[in-house]
Simulated assay, not measured.
Amino acid sequence: MIRLYTDDLNVNYDDRLIIKNLNVEIPDKKITTIIGPNGCGKSTLLKAITRIIPHQSGSILLDGKNITRKNTKALAKKIAILPQTPEGVNGLTVGELVSYGRFPYQNGFGRLSNKDIEVIDWALKVTGTSEFKYRSVDALSGGQRQRVWIAMALAQETEIIFLDEPTTYLDLAHQLEVLELLQRLNMEQDRTIIMVLHDLNQAARFADYIIALKDGEIVKAGKGEDVINRHVLKKVFNIDAEIGQDPRTNKPVCITYNLIKGEQKNEEIMDTIPAIPHAVH
């Protein structure tokens, strides 16, 4: 089932076209991961779909309706986004930050209802952050802080959650912790998860559907084995990759790779270097 999709979407930054006539479908109640080189338009796509930035032409449709025509609070009840580098938490406690997720449901007085408090406590419990409720967000580790941000997104009670590089700056254990949490939310609560990831093996392991972007266009979209293969990775990243199978998940895994452009450049450089003369005995 497809509830969210774009139709010939074009997005500019200043005079530069970043997203080009993009037609993308987001599978409902699945985990979708967007991969691609830096500057290819991954974050731009997320921001455009969630209406953080405007698009120049084309359409973004949710449940058959153009999101540009939706009321802001109404849209915030359907879509939540966790940006790449969340800011604005100085001096806030964990509970206060998570309460921001209830904004779409509050009246003009901004007071938390009993339902709001119940949802906040539930979001803290689900993300394993209840013990931090009265602690300053600034005092938390990177992994703890990321789980708190996810709790805020959950408190928004949306069926669709966007995350822009949710594992950035986290060590391996905390990366796995965050990704397993998102996987549980998808499997146990049918949340539709869309996230940008740089790690190809994490994308292959946790995603049901992968979208590979390059220069604002889709190179390939599909299941892990359809995207994480030598042909696609060569086209998207200019790498020659060796692909195997993860023995625990049976998902594709990138074992090693060489930079194709780099090899060619090195060969050209070596051709210009004079041979080392043999020692004279």
Rank of each mutant, 00 (worst) to 15 (best):
M187S: 15
L200E: 05
E242S: 05
D208T: 06
I218D: 00
T168I: 12
I243M: 09
I194S: 03
Q189A: 11
D215M: 09
H278W: 10
L154R: 00
E177W: 07
I255E: 10
N229D: 06
V178P: 03
I161N: 01
I273N: 14
K234G: 13
M195F: 07
I211E: 01
Q245L: 14
L259H: 15
A275K: 13
N229T: 05
E217R: 09
A275F: 07
G222N: 06
Q156M: 08
I260Q: 12
I255P: 01
R191D: 05
T256E: 13
Q144K: 06
M187D: 15
E225W: 13
E159V: 00
A212F: 01
M187W: 12
G262F: 10
E268P: 10
G216Y: 06
L179I: 05
Q146E: 06
P274A: 11
P247T: 08
H198N: 09
L182N: 11
N250I: 02
V232M: 01
I161W: 04
I239M: 12
D215E: 15
M270K: 12
V236P: 02
P247I: 08
A279P: 11
I194R: 02
I273L: 15
R230D: 04
I269V: 15
T249L: 11
D208W: 03
A173V: 05
I273T: 15
M270P: 01
E157G: 07
L182A: 12
E242F: 00
E188F: 12
A155R: 03
N266V: 11
I260N: 11
M195C: 14
Y169A: 11
N229E: 05
G143S: 01
T256D: 12
A139E: 15
G244N: 09
W149I: 04
T256N: 14
V148A: 13
K223I: 10
I239V: 15
I150S: 00
E242N: 04
Q175C: 07
Q156N: 11
